[in-house]
Amino acid sequence: MIPGDFQVKKPTSKQLAIFGTLGVVGLGSFVAIALGLTWIVSAWLGMPVIFAHDQGPTQPIAFPHPTHVQDLGLDCTFCHRNVTEGAAATIPSAGLCLTCHQVVGDGLEQIENMREQVADDRPIDWVRVHRVPDHVHFVHEAHIRRFSGVKTVVEEWTDPNEQAGEIRLGEALRIDPSVSVGQTMEIAEAQVCSVCHGDVGSMATVEQVRPLKMGDCVDCHRDNGAPTDCTTCHY
């Protein structure tokens, strides 16, 4: 044999078995890691995992929206008073709750708790459900102004001059699931909320229904002819 000449050694059957097992284990773990990563990435893309929860957070006082909205017929704007005036929708102070609950709801544990807190001058630490990052400036008032009033339902937004009297089917369906294209609907200010927040009136625990990420905002702005300059929201 010439020195340096390479002779292939035939592996023994025992070695073959080891290599085979290692290969299968390696392939298996590779597939597992790949699937895991895909799941994480798709979860990040598909769901609001950072700024929201799958289910709404537990509030210090289990405020039942259905009771107040569906049974009593209160408007969103009755409590969230600043929503048609400025940027923040605002949570009402406990004083507003007490206008009714001074006399209503004696004996209910949650309401007694609230009265106690108010008597102690302790604010109610509501847990925020919808939150956008600090570098995003969302103004409720402007969006409610755009979508409230008498609107004709259209398939797609086209003409900037007609825009004030039109609403796209996509948004209209979120307000009233029974509308169709061509129909005229009168949208009250408090109805606009459901475009982004869903039907909060029927939620026992309030949860976020839309991703509310930049893609979501920009898509809607583009579809509705709203400005898409960065400084519309970022400043």
Binding site: A87, H137, E141, A142, R145, T231, T232, H234, Y235
Partner: peptide
């Protein structure tokens, strides 16, 4: 609250107080 608090590692400069321009434009549109 109308102005972002810039974190470490980014550039900033005068904006001509764009938050005031935005607010007054919006209030005029109202």
């Amino acid at each position: 609250p109308d102005v972002t608090v810039r974190s470490r590692g980014i550039m900033e400069k005068c904006t001509f107080c764009i938050q005031r321009i935005r607010r007054s434009t919006r209030e005029a549109a109202k």
